[in-house]
Design a binder for these strands. Structure first.
Length: 499
RNA sequence: GCCCCUAUCGUCUAGGGGACCAGGACGUAGCCCUUUCAAGGCUAAGACCGGGGUUCGAAUCCCCGUAGGGGUACCA
């Protein structure tokens, strides 16, 4: 499966545990996984938990559950370990401090003692005077001795990167090419916070280098700060990874035009009956194959004809050359399409096991034996797994609820329904074989005899036996229900119609 | 405000100067198949944001608008 000609890629997925794992994360992780597997490299999972304020203790479990469920097992990282451990940034504090100190001693960074209030003041003044908003440089030229002395005196401080005032910084993004930034618009970004913890800009760069990451897949929102990242790599004398900035997801067209806000992710459930979060999607009956295929094709393409792929096929076909830079609007209709199509590709045994939990959750104790029988009947009718319950629940009920409304088709009256049902009942009673081969023709002959359309008899039987208007093919359905129960239900319907 | 990215059917996209009166997929509409619902088959409607260049020739290259998005935090 792996591409022997390519050098092994080490790609990392490095989310911050601040919320539930969503489709955007899933796509980034997928691409990391694909490129690593394709080249015989490693997919690394690192946790960027440097922001204690936004930390969500439930996020990490949701993350590992989501990734595992999607089939994106990582080779290195939290849980599984690896030679570059630890893989949680909160456990790597000293490492970042060491490099921060090196940067300072080299003159590429400096200790800054400016207060938040003072910073805010200069910002406002700059805004008022229409100057570039950036750090005013107060602490930039403090001597190391003086800075160390002030730190020893207990003054609070941060570490800032010393961004040049002139010239440009260029980053090479694999999907967009070279992008240049004027340094005058860049800032002396904070690298280490006053609590001693590094921010993303330092921590991620140090980790990516130390962990030998060759390709960095991340969202386009990182483009504006990428010159800082380039500068950090250069200052430390390291070779840059290949930067791959992925397009952003926009809100579904049904919700309007434009960016995907938190409000939109909340609205998805009520307005579209869907969700932005992986574990929600699982609960709604989407399967990993469907979600993987769908997100893979958002911002990436293979050729002008094919778009239906399994994870294994994606590993084989994926290429960063075909990545698309423009933002994409989520289209859940297409998710439905991919999901349904992948459900149809599943083996009966596999699908039966996957729909089982949905029956259990609905309070239906579905045995494997019956599940295996009904699965072929509903397989091509499912868009999501949970629909199996609605479509097949009548197989499991000892006593389906019948009503005149359910029995009567709008096209004819109750008296006619009674006649059709009775006639069909008599016919079915006479045979032990409920198969299509045995019953189809006799039922049609009977309809002809009665001078009615076959559909009328079919519908009457369907309504009485299943209590549903839309079901899998009648004869297979009746075979599974069994003659005894079929007759029982027909009798009940007749009694009801006679009353 | 300033900086950066992006711009082909409603949506996802193919296209990287002539092969394009722009191809595929989802969705939509119609027809066929059919005992219902699906699945499947066929057909249809549907796009190169605008304006300038460059060129014999531009969806493709350049510039300017416009629009959408991102950033502008001791968040990631």
């Amino acid at each position: 499966m792996s591409n022997k000609n390519a050098t092994p890629v080490r790609a990392r997925f490095a989310p911050s545990p601040t919320g539930l794992t969503h489709l955007g994360s899933a796509r980034t992780a997928l691409y990391d996984y694909l490129i690593a597997k394709q080249t015989g490299g490693q997919f690394v999972l690192r946790i960027e938990d440097t922001d204690q304020k936004r930390f969500d203790p439930k996020a990490e479990e949701d993350l590992t559950n989501s990734l595992k469920w999607l089939g994106l097992q990582w080779d290195e990282g939290i849980e599984v370990g690896g030679q570059y451990a630890p893989y949680r940034q909160s456990e790597r504090k000293e490492i970042y401090q060491k490099y921060a100190r090196q940067l300072i001693e080299q003159g590429d960074a400096f200790y800054c003692f400016c207060s938040a209030e003072k910073l805010e003041e200069t910002r406002q003044a700059q805004q008022k005077n229409k100057e570039n908003i950036r750090y005013d440089g107060t602490c930039r030229h403090l001597s190391l001795e003086e800075a160390d002395q002030r730190i020893a005196n207990g003054e609070p401080y941060v570490v800032r990167f010393k961004m040049p005032y002139e010239g440009t910084t260029t980053i090479t993004d694999f999907v967009r090419g070279e992008i240049s930034f004027d340094n005058q618009y860049l800032d002396d970004y904070v690298l280490v916070k006053s609590n001693g913890l590094a921010v993303y800009h330092l921590a991620a760069m140090v980790d990516d280098h130390l962990m030998n990451i060759t390709h960095v897949f991340r969202g386009e929102e990182w483009l504006p700060t990428s010159p800082l990242h380039v500068r950090i790599y250069e200052a430390l004398g390291w070779e840059q990874p290949i930067w791959v900035h992925l397009s952003l997801f926009l809100k579904p067209r049904e919700l309007g035009k434009g960016k995907l806000s938190k409000r939109d992710t909340e609205k998805m459930k009520e307005a579209l009956g869907t969700s932005f979060f992986i574990m929600d999607l699982k609960e709604m009956g989407y399967i990993p194959e469907g979600i993987i295929n769908w997100v893979a094709m958002m911002g990436w393409s293979y050729d002008d004809k094919s778009d239906f792929f399994t994870l294994a096929e994606l590993v084989e076909k994926f290429s960063i050359e075909k990545l698309n830079p423009s933002a994409v609007a989520l289209d859940f209709k297409k998710l439905d399409y991919f999901n349904a199509k992948h459900i149809r590709e599943l083996s009966v045994e596999d699908l039966a096991q996957r729909i089982k939990p949905f029956f259990l959750k609905a309070g239906i104790d579905a045995s494997d034996e019956i599940l295996l029988k009904i699965t072929p009947l509903i397989q091509e009718r499912l868009t999501t797994l949970n629909q199996a319950v609605e479509k097949a629940k009548f197989f499991f009920k000892d006593d389906i609820e019948l009503s005149l409304e359910k029995l009567q088709e709008s096209k004819w009256d109750l008296a006619a329904t009674l006649i059709y049902t009775k006639a069909a009942y008599e016919l079915i009673k006479k045979t032990d074989d409920l198969s299509q081969d045995a019953l189809n023709q006799p039922l049609r002959d009977l309809a002809k005899e009665m001078g009615v359309k076959p559909g009328m008899l079919f519908a009457s039987v369907r309504n009485a036996v299943t209590g549903e208007r839309q079901t899998p093919p009648l004869f297979e359905t009746m075979q599974i229900i069994g003659k005894e129960k079929v007759l029982e239900r027909l009798e009940k319907a007749i009694t009801l119609l006679e009353s």
